[in-house]
Design a protein around this nucleic acid. Structure first.
Lengths: 229, 229
DNA sequence: CGGACAGTTGACTATCCTCAAGTATGGTGG
DNA sequence: CCACCATACTTGAGGATAGTCAACTGTCCG
């Protein structure tokens, strides 16, 4: 989707395109000064990688947001995660991506070569343990989402989602959703209409306020009450 | 549930209870001869560990089967995985279990001290990488289940489930389900009635045959056709 | 101003859930 | 060995939640 500046040809030779930042800014792990990422950008709705492609790179979001999804042949889509500033994504089991990743909005990332990270992991137990920890954290998130998808009502799903997003944006209770209703629906296993209706219900109940469709202010107490059943 | 032989007091001192097997049989990783598991047993429906408990041990199933689940205050339950012979379970992010694990049937396991495994990981990059790989594999499984829970119909869920179980039992197309309809329902985000009805439908369509409620023979072609949409 | 697209709302439908009754199955005790 | 009970499973009828289809509104662009 969108224009495709062949993302895979550029990051390998990072010299000219963008000057390297300080190690502190571009490095992946504190104790790996040689593990430096190359800055890169994606436009809104642009694909970062597609399911089935070689998993050559790993990405850290600097600014913007990315979604990962799986899709069925008839178009049904499940978003498995949103990656916000600071998040790492693109690790896979095996040599190919089993997800598609796309930028929600114009997004800046740092690109790392997967091989290089794997080599660092085989050399440094500390790096490997950090990677293990990140994978375990992702697993916990995935399992929480499984509970939500398998056992929660539409209201509970949307409320839990808003609380989650709020937390990831600093927990101020007010934020602009970086994703469309379709993205939310495909993350929560609902339809856009149900998401929209649920927003309206939550607004009626005073659990949130909308200013425009994206800007949300939460009444976190009431929202938590919806989730905590 | 059931009798509780205080699982946590025994594995620490593995000397007397059961004679240690060969390293090959009890070890967790080939290159860690010091990482030896203690054999232990759980009765049908017995809890291995509960949500919120200290995650002191890690388990490998030798014989039998274990389920991991998360549960809401009103009893809604989501099973996040079944662990069969050979599978490792009990790793967590942080120091406490965020699941409950229970034996489906009388089950023999090997118990490992989590601390010891973590220490091995910090010493050996190879061990850490293996742990990382296992976590990544679990993550992939979890994300596939998310797609199933979020976007698939009851028929597709049950069909996919049966294909998965068949694969884990060797792919012969005939096996005895080790879990109840309730367990299946709570894994697939359905009710027992829907699971039961779906079994009946699939049997009518010739996609499977039942001999007793647990013994299943698959018509894998037709079943795959149901899943592949 | 107008077009494209995102989002909302309404009416109707379908899938799955709930409640209820009935049928196997397996273990226990006489 | 059989009767009995508890439990697992199946089936049916009706209902609720979320989905589908469609129309409409708002917003961002040029």
């Amino acid at each position: 989707m969108g224009t495709k500046p062949t993302p895979r040809s550029i990051p390998v030779a990072p010299g000219s395109r963008t000057p390297r930042r300080s190690i502190h800014e571009c490095g992946l792990f504190a104790d790996c000064p040689d593990l430096v990422g190359t800055p890169f950008s994606y436009a809104r709705e642009e694909e970062v990688y597609g399911e089935g492609e070689d998993a050559e790179f790993v990405y850290r979001v600097v600014e913007g947001a990315v979604r990962s999804h799986k899709i069925l042949s008839d178009g049904r889509r499940q978003i498995t995660g949103f990656h916000l500033a600071g998040n790492l994504f693109g690790f896979e089991q095996g040599d190919t991506h089993w997800h598609t990743a796309e930028a929600l909005s114009d997004t800046r990332v740092l690109i790392f070569q997967r091989r290089q990270i794997e080599r660092a992991a085989t050399r440094s137990a500390e790096v490997a343990c950090q990677l293990w920890g990140m994978a375990t954290t992702s697993l916990r998130d995935a399992q929480n989402l499984m509970l939500l998808l398998g056992r929660r009502s539409a209201q509970e799903r949307v409320a839990a989602f808003l609380i989650e997003v709020d937390g990831r944006f600093g927990g101020t209770g007010a934020f602009a959703l970086p994703m469309t209703r379709r993205d939310i629906a495909d993350y929560l296993g609902l339809t856009i209409e149900t998401v929209s209706r649920t927003f309206s219900q939550l607004e009626e109940n005073g659990a949130l306020r909308r200013s425009g469709s994206r800007q949300i202010t939460l009444h976190r107490g009431r929202l938590r009450h919806v989730v905590e059943n």
